[in-house]
């Protein structure tokens, strides 16, 4: 399945707010470094994500670029 949360890692400042507000705890701070020296957030459990958008709403840096949900296939 395609990712539900698109992260712009370069914009992330590792503030951890999205990780904190996520009701399903599917986000975490990665161990990579971005060009500014921050460890960007990543979605590690796409299956459990419910696309609630809390991460997008709380993100102060527009690093959570987009939140999507799968469209159910029409019968």
């Amino acid at each position: 399945m395609e990712t539900r949360v698109i992260v712009n890692e370069e914009r992330c400042k590792s503030c951890n707010l999205c990780v904190e507000v996520c009701p399903k705890k599917v986000l975490r701070i990665s161990d990579r470094l971005n060009p500014k020296g921050y460890r960007p957030v990543e979605l590690f459990d796409n299956e459990a994500c419910i696309s609630c958008g809390f991460c997008y709403l709380i993100c102060p840096d527009a690093a959570i670029v987009e939140v999507r949900r799968p469209v159910k296939a029409k019968a």
């Binding site: 840096d61 527009a62 469209v71």
Partner: peptide, 19 residues
């Protein structure tokens, strides 16, 4: 996929100077 939230075009690509 249906987009629910997306950073608007009016927000520039420039990273903010905020903490």
């Amino acid at each position: 996929m249906k987009t629910l939230y997306k950073v608007p075009g009016a927000v520039t690509d420039c990273p903010t100077t905020y903490c």
